[in-house]
Amino acid sequence: MPKRSNEPLLWSLFSAGGVVAAFLIPVHLFLFGVAFPLGWLPDPGYQRLLALVRHPLTRIYLFVLCSLPLFHWAHRFRYTLYDGLQIKHLNELIFTFCYGGAMAGTAAAGYLLWTIR
């Protein structure tokens, strides 16, 4: 039997990250980048937001919000390097850099969200 690819795992992270990045990040940009600073919506203030972040569900949500788009980036950037710069022969390096970067970002997000008090 020919070797099955592990791409499905990477692609599903890529797709999930794309959905998160396309649907959720614009909401955050709108709220924190436009609506609160311009006073369109009442500013919740630092203390209330911190209380919100302390809730475990918010932490899980923010973890997903940080992690999945990183894997989306990793996949997209890997293929951009392959096809755009045509350096597929550096596959191991590119692979490690892209998905390693996403994993490092995920670990950093996890650490910060875990330790916030």
Binding site: M1, P2, K3, R4, S5, W11
Partner: peptide, 11 residues
């Protein structure tokens, strides 16, 4: 499936 699911199939 085996043919399509390879790297040089859909991926």
């Amino acid at each position: 499936t085996d043919l399509l699911s390879q790297e040089d199939g859909i991926w």
